[in-house]
Design a protein around this nucleic acid. Structure first.
Lengths: 108, 108
DNA sequence: TACAATATGTCTCCGTTGGGACATATCTCA
DNA sequence: TGAGATATGTCCCAACGGAGACATATTGTA
């Protein structure tokens, strides 16, 4: 039961908070879209449609949370994303809330 | 900056994960809709529309995460909600994920 | 050579969600 | 008595987001 709840919640959180999950992942190391898709799917056991992923990455770059650099592998190009200072601050803000929510059965 | 991020994120999380926030709150003590609205607004500094709140509470009851009991205060009735075992399990599953996400800069 | 994997992008339809109004009743206090 | 707070509910329309298709190019492998 708890396991089904878990899956459902992970699915919801990777959907609704996709941007944050992406930032968190890229924070560990610079990464490109396709790699991210594979990692997320392996790690969280959820499908991540590339039709949702790529627009989100571009959006995050527009907002200044990520920067990108094209890397050539022969003829094929990868768009490698790196997190910015602003992006890190966003992730920090998120982590702060998580901490409160964990401690915070102290909601009175 | 971090403060604006914080507010934005709290707003997003109370919207997208409203059900969980409600369960978490009711878990601390049985509560009715109007009180919840006031507490959430005071505590999180976000507006919680009653047009979103009441349908959600009813939905959570239908799903078996909450039970309700009508309490009379003179002629006025309050619908007091209590969390069920199933509801608690859902909150636990959520807490589990939060823990992972906090520790889990270990995403490789 | 043909298929699967790597790699990145757009677009459209459809369903869900949210904002805000509509609705009603009681209670308290000035 | 009239306004504001308490208390719970529904409903509609617009906006947003997701599922899945459309699109294209390279690389590796059977």
């Amino acid at each position: 039961m708890t396991e089904t709840f878990r899956k459902e919640l992970v699915q919801r959180m990777t959907r609704n908070l996709l941007d944050i999950q992406l930032l968190r992942l890229i924070q560990t190391q610079p990464m490109w879209g396709y790699k991210i898709k594979k990692v997320v799917e392996a790690l969280f056991g959820v499908t991540l449609r590339h039709g949702a992923l790529y627009p989100m990455l571009n959006k995050l770059e527009q907002k200044g949370f990520l920067t990108s650099e094209k890397q050539k592998q022969g003829q094929r190009t990868r768009k490698v994303y790196t997190i910015t200072r602003k992006g890190k601050q966003y992730v920090e803000a998120y982590a702060g809330i998580l901490k409160e929510q964990l401690v915070g059965s102290d909601i009175k």
